[in-house]
Simulated assay, not measured.
Amino acid sequence: MPGPTDPLEPWPDTVRWQPVSRDLIWVELLRLGATLAVLLIGLAIGWAVSGHRLFGYGMALLVAFGLWRITVIIRAVRAWGYAERDDDLLVRHGLVVRRLSIVPYARMQFVDVTAGPLERAFQLATVQLHTAAAASDARVPGLRPAEASRLRDRLTDLGQHRAEGL
């Protein structure tokens, strides 16, 4: 059987990827909408005060950017996934630059679960894994609180048991 052709998909048949909640799309779209609204209001005020058409062009570019960003957000959330294996956690994400992080349970130092006001409104949380190397930290956003708690407890338990063997 030939090896994998994509280095980011090394275990297509043996790994069961878990997707994040699609409600994360709404959280990200609301964040984008708030940012664009502030910028558009600023440009509209500038246009009204100065009457210079460059502000109108800026508004048009901002709307075009917003439409492009909506597409990217939808696709990016669908690209997030995680998989629990016996010795490590796999986390994948990204569209243009795809990333696959493999975090061994024995290397985890602590696990955070966070949820800002917007995430809480959509009943979502983020699990953040911290290791000794900052570059190897991984996060899994868009989890339901029960799943985030379960994952946190499982990762913490597995991390303690694996670290005892070192």
Rank of each mutant, 00 (worst) to 15 (best):
P2S: 07
P4K: 12
P4D: 13
T5F: 12
P7W: 09
P7A: 10
W11F: 15
W11H: 15
W11N: 14
T14E: 15
T14P: 03
R16Q: 13
W17F: 07
Q18P: 01
Q18W: 09
P19Q: 13
V20E: 02
V20D: 01
S21L: 00
S21G: 02
I25F: 08
V27H: 06
V27G: 01
V27Q: 06
E28R: 14
L29C: 06
L29F: 10
L30C: 05
R31P: 00
R31Q: 11
R31H: 08
L32F: 09
G33Y: 06
G33M: 08
A34K: 11
T35M: 12
A37E: 05
V38I: 13
L39K: 02
L39T: 04
L39M: 11
L40C: 06
I41M: 11
L43T: 05
A44K: 04
A44R: 06
I45V: 15
I45F: 14
G46K: 07
G46P: 09
G51K: 08
G51S: 11
R53F: 14
L54W: 15
Y57R: 03
G58S: 08
G58F: 05
M59H: 03
M59Q: 13
L61D: 12
L62R: 02
L62F: 04
V63E: 05
A64K: 09
A64G: 07
G66K: 04
L67T: 02
W68S: 11
W68I: 13
W68A: 14
I70L: 10
I74G: 10
A76L: 14
A76M: 13
V77L: 08
R78L: 07
A79S: 15
A79T: 14
G81I: 13
Y82T: 04
A83T: 07
A83K: 04
R85I: 05
R85W: 05
D87P: 01
D87S: 11
D88V: 05
D88I: 03
D88F: 13
R92P: 03
G94M: 07
L95F: 10
R98G: 15
R99N: 13
L100I: 09
I102K: 12
P104T: 07
R107F: 06
R107M: 04
M108P: 03
D112P: 00
D112G: 01
D112Q: 10
T114P: 00
T114F: 00
P117R: 10
L118H: 05
L118Y: 04
L118S: 06
A121S: 10
A121G: 08
A121E: 02
A121C: 02
Q123Y: 04
L124C: 06
A125Y: 03
A125M: 01
T126Y: 02
V127R: 01
V127P: 01
H130A: 04
T131M: 07
A132S: 15
A133H: 12
A133D: 14
A135P: 02
A135I: 05
R139M: 11
V140Y: 01
V140C: 00
V140W: 02
V140T: 05
V140F: 03
G142Q: 04
L143K: 00
L143I: 04
R144N: 09
R144L: 13
P145A: 03
P145C: 05
A146N: 02
S149Y: 02
R152N: 11
R154P: 00
R154Y: 06
L155P: 01
L155H: 00
L155D: 00
T156D: 08
L158I: 02
G159M: 03
H161I: 09
H161L: 12
A163G: 10
G165E: 08
G165Q: 09
G165R: 11
